[in-house]
């Protein structure tokens, strides 16, 4: 049963590596921001799965806080790109 969760986390990690390709290539700054946003979403999803793998609830709590912090940072980068800061 545990192996399935580890397999899913492995798939998400591979996807993160592919998203980093766009982060490096991305012609404009907003492209890089959405690639970073994708990586953040995948990190949160895999953190929730890791909470089951290690049987620790604290990892899910960390995932919630990580998600809110990445939301704030994305909003500020968006303000910077839009020239309102």
């Amino acid at each position: 049963m545990i192996d399935v969760w580890i397999l899913a986390v492995f798939c998400l990690t591979v996807l993160m590596a592919f998203a980093v390709v766009r982060l490096v290539l991305g012609p404009t700054a907003p492209d890089r921001v959405i690639a970073l946003d994708t990586v953040n979403t995948l990190v949160i999803a895999s953190m929730i799965l890791l909470g089951v793998v290690f049987q620790e609830i604290i990892i899910v709590d960390v995932a919630i806080v990580y998600g809110l912090l990445s939301f704030v940072s994305t909003l500020y980068i968006a303000k910077y790109i839009g020239g309102e800061l």
């Binding site: 709590d61 919630i64 939301f71 909003l75």
Partner: peptide, 25 residues
């Protein structure tokens, strides 16, 4: 409960930040 709450926050914040980036771009 925590996993459900994390998913709810994720859906909400992704929608808002997508709008913010699109507008800024």
């Amino acid at each position: 409960i925590h996993a459900f709450l994390a998913a709810a926050f994720l859906a909400f914040t992704n929608a808002v930040s997508a709008h913010a980036i699109a507008r800024a771009a």
